[in-house]
Computed example of a mutant assay.
Amino acid sequence: MPVRQTLGAATAAALLLLAAPSADALSGPYDQVTIDPTGTVGADGTISLSGTYRCLSAGGPVFVSSSVSQGDPRVRQGIGGTSAVCDGAVHRWTNSEKRTPGTLTPGAARVEATLMELRPTAGGLPLPAFHAQREQDISLTES
């Protein structure tokens, strides 16, 4: 009986190794979004955030949306949206939004960026399909 269990475990291990993705497969292109380590806040309340994105293909319009929180992490403020091009190349995105002056101030902040597609459906109503998402602590500086 122990020999049969050993052969079963060895076979299972071999199958797992064969099914595991190669290093080349993991380093290939994929959808991604990044966030720059600094954003700006103007005296008039204009917040600007930026980063990069890459997406391979899409069946509908794609956007990079962003939000920022400062202080209370439960309170997020949407900061603009940018149309995205899904051609496999890395592109820059910048989102800006005017807020009441003093709402966000220079200093530490938490940003979330999302690469999202509005995918058409058979019923005609487009539904969101998320390609990539990232959260990151950044520093807001005075512009």
Rank of each mutant, 00 (worst) to 15 (best):
Q5T: 06
H91G: 10
G45L: 11
H91T: 06
G107S: 09
G80H: 06
P73I: 03
L115N: 03
S50T: 02
D24Q: 13
T114A: 14
T141A: 13
A23Y: 11
V33R: 04
W93T: 09
Y53S: 08
P2D: 07
V62N: 02
D72P: 06
A10H: 00
A43D: 15
E142N: 09
A89Y: 05
A109S: 09
V64G: 07
Y30K: 14
L16H: 03
D24C: 02
I79E: 09
G102V: 04
P106T: 03
I47H: 03
S65D: 11
I79W: 03
P2S: 10
V3F: 07
G124M: 10
S50G: 14
V62D: 01
E112K: 13
A129S: 14
R92L: 12
T40F: 00
Q5E: 15
V62F: 01
T114S: 14
L104H: 13
G124P: 11
L16G: 11
F63M: 04
L118C: 02
A108N: 13
H131V: 06
H131R: 11
T103Q: 15
D72F: 10
M116Y: 07
A14N: 04
A9K: 09
D72C: 08
C55Q: 03
T94S: 14
E135N: 06
G123W: 01
S48V: 11
R134N: 08
Q32D: 13
V111N: 10
P106I: 00
A89L: 12
L15Y: 03
A10N: 02
A13W: 07
S69L: 10
P21G: 02
A19V: 02
Q70T: 09
E97W: 01
E112A: 15
V111E: 04
